[in-house]
């Protein structure tokens, strides 16, 4: 393109507005559509439901985003953790098994947290110290965790009943369920860490250009390792919600969640002006995914259509945003 023309073309107010907010616009349009189709959609109770349904996904997706940010978004060699959803499932299995065998709930949750962090530490070690491609190192961890879960649960449903877990599942503070509070608090904590601290800048730097970051004196290895640990802690937090809501654990609960977690993490870029993965965008993406599932159920779309519509909407949202971002980037 002729640079002369580019310079003389002012960025339209409208196009820059759409560019900045296209992710949000799509979010609102879809919500409006559901509200028009079903009067039950915009009720307080249903909004609470959506928040509740997205909370576990949202928390764990923040962890995935952390790992993508710290490892960079290269398609093959970038940061990714395929074992994250199964880490959550392992945590759920350990908690349920220990409570079912009579240990106090705090011991069970503590042990499960330690197990999750251990998994995160092994991932961090294999990626940072041993130099595995994250995709492959965490894939092998995913296989291991699938097996360990089977060993712990013997491939059966473990049902537990515990006053503390019941309180997590049914309790509410100021009318807002505990799980939603957990979602809000962990989302805010990761957000502050990533967007308001030096450590967060380091993580973006480590992911963007590790060599430059190293040259600037940033402890790249430490920073990348930390993202895997953060991921494992979010997995443990999400597991607490899952265990309390299911009153135990179900085989395969992690495999079901993996793709949604990846989706929310990667889709977060559409809520960002720089088209980068970010925490606020991740929270919105998780809510978007939760809203789609909820809305389609309310307007009675057959379940096997839901995934197709979800896929089309997501591809549509991402492609519109990407195109808009490119159009305006050209002027910047």
């Amino acid at each position: 393109m002729n640079p002369q023309i580019r310079k003389n073309q002012p960025v339209g107010v409208l196009s820059s507005f759409i560019f900045k907010y296209s992710g949000y616009l799509i979010f609102i349009l879809v919500a409006l559509y559901f509200a028009a189709r079903s009067p039950a959609f915009l009720t307080l109770q249903n909004v609470k439901n959506i928040l509740l349904q997205s909370s576990a996904l949202g928390i764990i997706a923040c962890g995935m985003t952390a790992i993508i940010v710290g490892g960079g978004s290269h398609v093959v060699r970038g940061g990714i953790d395929l074992s994250l959803a199964n880490n959550m499932a392992l945590n759920a299995a350990v908690t349920s098994f220990m409570v079912a065998s009579g240990y106090p709930v705090w011991v069970a949750i503590g042990t499960a947290l330690a197990a999750s962090i251990l998994v995160g530490a092994i991932n961090a070690f294999s990626v940072v110290k041993l130099g595995f491609i994250p995709l492959l190192g965490t894939l092998s961890m995913m296989y291991i965790l699938q097996g360990v879960q089977l060993l712990i649960t013997k491939n059966t449903v473990i049902s537990i009943s515990d006053p503390f877990l019941k309180a997590v599942a049914n309790g509410a503070l100021f009318g807002i369920p505990v799980a939603v509070w957990m979602f809000a608090v962990s989302g805010a904590a990761v957000y502050l860490l990533f967007h308001r601290t030096v450590l967060g800048n380091w993580m973006y730097a480590a992911g963007g250009n590790p060599d430059a970051a190293r040259a600037a004196g940033i402890p790249v290895h430490f920073v990348v390792a930390l993202t895997y640990i953060i991921g494992s802690i979010t997995a443990a937090a999400a597991s607490l919600i899952i265990v309390s809501r299911l009153s135990g654990t179900v085989p395969g609960v992690g495999d079901l969640m993996l793709l949604d977690v990846l989706l929310a993490g990667l889709m977060s870029a559409i809520f960002s002006r720089l088209a980068q993965p970010n925490i606020a965008g991740t929270v919105l993406s998780a809510l978007f995914v939760g809203m789609l599932s909820n809305g389609f159920t309310l307007i009675n779309v057959p379940t096997y259509w839901v995934f197709a519509i979800k896929g089309v909407l997501i591809l549509g949202a991402v492609s519109i945003t990407t195109t808009q971002q490119r159009k305006v980037m050209r002027h910047v």
Binding site: V75, L263, M267, Y304, F307, I309, G311, L315, V318
Partner: peptide
Amino acid sequence: MTPFLVTLGTLFIGES
């Protein structure tokens, strides 16, 4: 769009 997202979307649509 990034290949990861595109093919993930296709996976959802195709399986549906």
